[in-house]
Design a protein around this nucleic acid. Structure first.
Lengths: 161, 161
DNA sequence: TGCCAATTGTTGATATGTCAACAATCAGGT
DNA sequence: ACCTGATTGTTGACATATCAACAATTGGCA
């Protein structure tokens, strides 16, 4: 995670780009923590709220864990804390007594609506100095890398279990 | 963190690419956790060990925290656990009684040397299906985005403190 | 109908991460 | 020599993350 100078061989360039990928995600995440401080919300909490904003009927915690790429058990505490603060509520899921339907409260919905325009503006500013075609190229190569990583993880998981 | 379909406007493409960036870093991190299980090491621990492998004289914990983009206080526990397992040791830093010099033990050095070839091969496989110029373009745009995020965080931090 | 495997959410143990506060120490200027 | 401000590592409180194990429930199938 250290060398950021210009690489010489193709392999070195690929390795450097991967390190920079992880590093950039880290920097964005840290910047977003500072950004969300104004509303006393963490990035993880905002991502959950942002998902719920598009789900009028709410989502189960398993749904949330799949969308947020995080373990079921992590959602429990995340929802607990947001519920304590009155931004979300748990309602019974009709037809399945195992699951909760997690939805925004009126307050939560208002808060998310307050934050969203600032959030999109901040995201847009991260692209300063990059051309209009960059984003599409970036998206494509990132999707490929994520697919390869997913496949590698599944190969490895298949061996043990 | 949900929509991965092809975006229409430039702004939508930029937003989608950012989400994919965070998602890809997450997937890589999770895959690396599975990968490192064989050696009973976590990704965070490996990153620290990997840094130390290039520092014959060791590094202080502050040095480590700067390179790993993590808080000083996080390094304490990381080094504690690695020290308990005998992979690193703390030695006195000549000329500064506040600091430790953290270095690999002989065992730790051997373990890192065992892992590294597998690690580089696994990293290389993430690029399957991508052309040789992709990595350099990716590195460039990621550096720009990280710079912008860093600047945004500093602007925000400047306001409050 | 009744069994069994899968799913859902929670809990507890643990690792990783932040921050504020603290003691010890260092470094520079007077 | 002395004060002052910065740096170093640790601690404790907390948020976020994993996993295994558990109880409750669901759903399919013999």
């Amino acid at each position: 995670m250290a060398d950021t100078s210009t690489p010489t061989s193709d392999a070195a360039a690929r390795y450097a780009a991967l390190l920079q990928l992880l590093r950039t995600a880290d920097v964005i995440w840290d910047a977003s923590r500072v950004f969300f401080e104004r509303w006393e919300v963490t990035p993880a909490q905002f991502n959950l709220l942002n998902l719920l904003a598009d789900a009028a009927e709410g989502m189960t915690q398993s749904d949330l864990s799949r969308e947020l790429l995080t373990h079921r058990s992590n959602i429990t505490g995340l929802v607990d804390r947001l519920e304590d603060r009155g931004w979300v509520k748990r309602r019974e899921q009709a037809g399945d007594r195992r699951a909760w339907r997690v939805m925004l409260t009126a307050v939560g919905r208002r808060r998310v609506a307050d934050i969203l325009p600032h959030y999109h503006r901040a995201a847009e500013r991260l692209w300063e100095g990059a051309g209009p075609a960059e984003a599409r190229r970036l998206l494509e190569v990132l999707q490929r890398i994520a697919g390869n990583a997913q496949a590698a993880a599944e190969r490895l998981a298949g061996r043990s279990s």
